[in-house]
């Protein structure tokens, strides 16, 4: 990996986060550090490894975490996925696609009144289980999952 680019990237990320923190005027340095891209989690090739990198290995399924995704996706390149957490004190939601080369798709942290709901559009390389992982303020993790059948893949050509 090009180290120069890594450094530039880190610099850019840190500056952005710092500017945001200054603008918000209430972020602690630890939270700024937490904003660095989680390379271990995003480059893990299997879902269990992603969960481990997120610290969510001991998660349990919860009915209060809703994952909305189509049963069948005609086009794997654009699959709308919505995650709604009704679990009190949800501070973070991550979305995984089990069968993708890198399962972790996105992770969002919520603060200052943001509702723990997220809607994204994901690429699915093939029929796969889509997982949502919610983290609460007391460090507990909850999951929900749903299989999405893909008729045309979204990765490669």
């Amino acid at each position: 990996m090009d180290t120069m680019r890594r450094q530039l990237l880190k610099g850019a990320g840190a500056t952005g986060a710092l500017a945001a923190a200054l603008a918000a005027g209430l972020l602690k340095p630890t939270q700024v550090l937490a904003s660095e891209w989680n390379r271990t989690a995003f480059e893990a090739k299997e879902s269990p490894a992603v969960l481990k990198a997120l610290g969510a290995s001991g998660s349990s399924d919860s009915k209060d975490l809703q994952l909305k995704a189509p049963e069948i996706a005609e086009n794997g390149a654009v699959v709308p996925v919505e995650v709604i957490s009704n679990i009190p004190n949800t501070i973070s939601i991550a979305v995984l696609v089990d069968k993708n080369p890198f399962p972790l798709s996105a992770a969002f942290d919520f603060a200052n009144g943001a509702v723990p709901e997220i809607s994204v559009r994901l690429k699915l390389g093939q029929t796969s289980v889509v997982k949502a992982v919610a983290k609460t303020a007391d460090g507990k993790f909850y999951t929900a999952q749903k299989e999405v059948k893909v008729t045309v893949g979204g990765c490669g050509g």
Partner: peptide, 17 residues
């Protein structure tokens, strides 16, 4: 940021469309 407060901080990978 909404109204000057950071509300969402997200990290995304390659499987976002």
């Amino acid at each position: 940021e909404v109204g000057g407060k950071l509300v969402i901080q997200g990290q995304t990978g390659t499987s976002v469309s």
